[in-house]
């Protein structure tokens, strides 16, 4: 297995686990944690490809992958903040963070 492939597999694994958290756990915060894991896995993918890309494909001083990852970190942080703020606001109203109970739209 090439190093790249190893990194990609690890990233895929972490991604799958993050997805599993988001899809199976009931707590809303845990879902957000899963989402963070997924984003991080994607970041790992990006950095791995940045490292193992051939010389001929390097443009912009070869910083594209890294830049992408950095921006992704920033956006993910912002998104985490907003998401957690939502969960807190919802909890204030309904005193619960159970996703299965968040069925206020249910007609």
């Amino acid at each position: 297995m090439t190093p790249l492939a190893a990194f990609l597999v690890v990233a895929a694994l972490v991604f799958a686990i993050g997805l599993a958290i988001a899809l199976t756990r009931r707590n809303a915060i845990l879902v957000l944690i899963g989402i963070e894991l997924m984003l991080n896995a994607a970041n790992l993918n990006l950095i791995a490809f940045w490292r193992f890309s051939p010389h001929a494909n390097r443009h912009n001083d070869g910083l594209t992958g890294m830049m992408f990852a950095i921006f992704s970190i920033a956006v993910a942080a912002a998104e985490a903040a907003v998401g957690l703020g939502l969960v807190i606001a919802y909890h204030r109203h309904t005193k619960t963070t159970d996703l299965d109970a968040m069925t206020r739209m249910k007609g």
Binding site: L19, L23, V31, D100, M102, T103, R104, M105, K106, G107
Partner: peptide, 17 residues
């Protein structure tokens, strides 16, 4: 149909994925 629109987030996520 309304059941589908009940705001069940995990379900949506699963379908999405």
């Amino acid at each position: 149909l309304a059941w589908l629109q009940a705001g069940r987030t995990p379900g949506y996520l699963r379908i999405l994925t």
